[in-house]
Design a protein around this nucleic acid. Structure first.
Length: 320
DNA sequence: TAAGCGTGGTC
DNA sequence: TGACCAAGCTT
């Protein structure tokens, strides 16, 4: 199948309707594009644009500046954005690749936290490499355009290669993400304005592609968090492991402490479970493991949003 | 192949 | 409010 007519329509659409003002589209610096791509993984443009992209680059203007920083510093600039693994990968990548990020997809994909789609995005947007992107937007377009209810990763990549405009990969890839984000929406797609409409096999029933996934049940986990005081300091500890790894948190226990006064509960939703945090003011004699942090210094260490919620409530109760 | 990984926006 | 979703990657 020849898609040159579709490619022309996509190019015309992009001129008129593309999101040309996004700051990472006004540069060909691989580092600036890389940071945007990492931040945008599973994260909406609005969030990155309004809260994280510029402050992070003010703090870390070059790959070298990250390589020279501590992981704690990078996590601090990342706090609130979520999926903190990404901050660890960026730190590792900077240590490996500084002062210059490669632009070859094969080299990029070997760096930690850079998969095929991110590698292709960096290559396509910095040096206009003729490689396709397969993000959530393109994925949804492909399912509909080829009328597929299900597809494996391998099949999707093959479809992405099939449809790619090899003569204008930069415009094509940018446009596809914009079309997915503003036209080929998950619900109520605006097919009448879509440049792929003429050859879209799913045009008559876009809601059927892809087939909906069954929602998984989300368990509820209860945990007891401890406010352990010593003058103007409280006890904190640094998390290990994948979940929020590297961030500071309050000490916590599975069961309620015997020598503790319950202050309140906070409900906090993660993607895969709901956390009910019971907060106790701990008055036991034996302190849990941790480090004493001055309450005035809490803003300078990286914590998760749950800790932010707890601290805000404690301040409201003038307990902090 | 599927689960695990955060947070916030949207309807 | 709950369910789904967002410029995915690793194991």
């Amino acid at each position: 199948m020849n898609y040159s007519d579709i490619h022309t329509d996509i190019g015309t659409w992009y001129e008129r309707c593309g999101r040309h003002d996004l700051p990472w589209r006004k540069t060909d610096d691989p580092y600036l594009i890389y940071i945007s791509e990492m931040m945008l993984q599973q994260t909406q443009v609005k969030t990155v644009l309004e809260r994280f992209y510029f402050p992070f680059l003010d703090r870390f203007p070059t790959l070298k500046s990250i390589a020279e920083a501590t992981l704690d510093d990078v996590l601090h600039a990342w706090q609130g954005l979520g999926y903190y693994r990404r901050a660890r990968y960026i730190h590792e990548t900077a240590r490996i690749a500084a002062p210059r990020l490669p632009t070859d997809p094969g080299e990029l994909v070997r760096l930690p936290g850079i998969g095929k789609s991110t590698a292709h995005a960096i290559a396509a947007f910095s040096v206009h490499a003729p490689v396709p992107i397969l993000d959530a937007n393109v994925r949804r377009i492909l399912y509909r355009f080829f009328a597929r209810k299900k597809a494996t990763e391998k099949e999707l990549w093959q479809l992405a290669e099939t449809l790619l405009d090899r003569e204008n990969p930069y415009t094509y890839n940018q446009a596809m993400m914009d079309i997915g984000a503003t036209v080929c929406l998950p619900k109520n797609p605006d097919c009448d304005t879509c440049p792929l409409e003429r050859k879209c096999l799913g045009r008559s029933a876009p809601q059927d592609y892809p087939a909906p996934k069954r929602a998984k049940n989300r368990p509820v986990k209860r945990r007891c968090y401890l406010l352990v005081e010593n003058g103007a300091k409280i006890l904190m500890r640094k998390r290990k492991g994948d979940l929020l790894g590297g961030l500071w948190e309050l000490p916590s226990t599975e069961t309620a402490p015997k020598e503790g006064e319950k202050l309140f509960e906070i409900v906090h939703d993660y993607t895969h479970f709901r956390r009910i945090a019971e907060l106790y003011r701990y008055r036991g004699k034996k302190n849990p493991e941790g480090e004493w942090i001055d309450v005035k210094e809490l803003h300078s260490i990286a914590t998760s949003s749950l800790e932010k919620k707890i601290f805000a409530r404690l301040q409201k109760l003038t307990l902090l």
